[in-house]
Design a protein around this nucleic acid. Structure first.
Length: 327
DNA sequence: CCCGAGGA
DNA sequence: TCCTCGGGG
């Protein structure tokens, strides 16, 4: 979900050409959730193999990854580690919504209401250990690097951009700005003939709003994040006005309200997140035999489609090889 | 969500 | 070349 900043943050329209040659650290949790909720039949049933294992995420991951590689983008997938204790409430709430939605999905199915069924099926999606493991296996076979975070995936991805190990983060959430990612790309999808890519640059956003990153974080804390509830009645616009004129501590004192967590602890979640600094980013060749074995034999995918996707992956190695040949 | 066939 | 739509696993 992330912090609700839509009302105060402008995004730039960009095209795939603007990302050509760049590496992108992808918020995997975000991406898998999109696939699991979106890739379904009309009545909400996800794609499944002959044994009943869900394959929606493998479908999405294979086709999207190969397509963005074909466009000259170099993906790095970043997986979540252990979430912060302060996120427990958010995680519990999401779990409750999932369970409720699963019930309502079944009910709608019994009533023969496909549209309703699909809506609730989408909300019932959950990322199980099987989903994670099978996704990592597919990435291995495609030769795409992935990095395991110690905490939030977005924190890790943002760190990698700060380090210069990735050019941009790809996520739907605004949280990466709080984590200090200088560049964030939204809607890194292929859907629709014309792409709907959006771009955010932290420096520009801060300059336009005339804020520091610390102030942006304080606005988020007032509005509410995955780690705290926020203050009732304060949205992005109000939060912006308040923080421009006063400190978070003073605002709270004047309003005679308290946060459930100490502000400095919340600030440090964004300013000093636990990250993995020991990772290797290397794009390798597709392991075609193992890929078809895994995707076609084990999970029932069409061989023609898998081979066609594998062919798109050659773009990565061709650009790398030509560089090696040069030196 | 993404693919690909087929029509405009 | 663009768009729609049915099916994918």
């Amino acid at each position: 979900m992330g912090v609700k900043f839509t009302d105060i943050i402008e995004t730039e329209e960009i095209g795939f050409k603007d990302l050509e040659g760049h590496s992108v650290a992808i918020d995997t949790y975000n991406t898998l959730y999109q696939f699991l909720s979106g890739i379904r039949q009309r009545d909400g049933t996800p794609l499944m193999d002959q044994d009943g294992n869900i394959t929606s995420h493998l479908s999405g991951l294979l086709y999207r990854t190969s397509s963005i590689v074909e466009k000259g983008i170099k993906p790095i997938y970043v997986f979540d580690g252990k979430h912060s204790d302060f996120k427990t409430n958010t995680v519990m709430k999401r779990k409750e919504v999932r369970n409720e939605s699963e019930k309502k999905w079944k009910e709608a199915l019994d009533e023969g209401n496909e549209e309703e069924a699909r809506k609730f099926a989408m909300r019932s999606s959950k990322i199980s250990p099987y989903i994670i493991e099978s996704s990592k296996k597919l990435l291995d076979l495609l030769g795409i690097p992935y990095v395991q975070s110690k905490s939030e995936g977005e924190a890790q991805a943002s760190y990698m951009v700060q380090k210069g190990d990735a050019w941009s983060v790809a996520s739907q959430d605004y949280d990466c700005l709080l984590f200090g990612a200088s560049r964030t790309v939204r809607n890194l999808t292929l859907s629709g003939g014309l792409s709907n890519l959006k771009y955010m640059e932290l420096e520009k956003i801060l300059a336009n709003l005339d804020l520091t990153r610390n102030q942006l974080i304080d606005i988020a804390i007032l509005v509410g994040t995955d780690f705290n509830e926020g203050i009732k009645g304060i949205g992005a616009k109000t939060g912006l006005k308040l923080i421009k004129n006063d400190s978070l501590e003073n605002i709270l004192k004047n309003k005679e309200v308290e946060l459930e967590v100490d502000p400095d602890i919340l600030r440090n979640i964004f300013l000093k997140p636990e990250v993995n600094t020991n990772y290797e980013i290397k794009w390798k060749n597709v392991k075609l035999d193992q890929l078809t074995e895994f995707m076609c034999e084990e999970h029932g995918f069409s061989e023609a489609r898998v081979v066609s996707s594998a062919n798109k992956m050659k773009k990565l190695n061709s650009t790398q090889k030509s560089l090696e040949d040069w030196f």
